[in-house]
């Protein structure tokens, strides 16, 4: 059962990472990177490291996403994308 959960989480993480690199829309790319961090915190929990899981859930998927969105907001009037 645990193996099934791990395989599913790994596949979703890899898909989200590829989407973060290849998405045309920058905001959806940033949200995909946040999804990678959130699933990573579940993996830390399964690996018996609850301290790291809390840190990753709060920093990796919370504050990092916010910092990216704030920085994107600062340079909103940009032309090209990709």
């Amino acid at each position: 059962m645990e193996l099934v959960i791990l395989v599913v989480i790994s596949l979703v993480m890899i898909a989200a990472a590829i989407m973060a690199i290849y998405s045309k829309n920058l905001i959806s790319a940033i949200i995909s990177a946040g999804v990678v961090s959130l699933l990573a915190s579940i993996i830390y929990l399964l690996l018996a490291a609850p301290d790291v899981a809390m840190t990753e859930a709060a920093i990796g998927s919370g504050l990092t996403t916010v910092v990216f969105l704030y920085a994107l907001n600062k340079m909103r009037k940009s032309g090209k994308d990709g």
Binding site: A53, T55, L63
Partner: peptide, 17 residues
């Protein structure tokens, strides 16, 4: 319990956010 200064500090920062 699991947690500590780093996690608590980040939670406070998210509250102020």
């Amino acid at each position: 319990t699991p947690g500590g200064g780093f996690q608590g500090g980040v939670i406070i920062a998210s509250g102020i956010l």
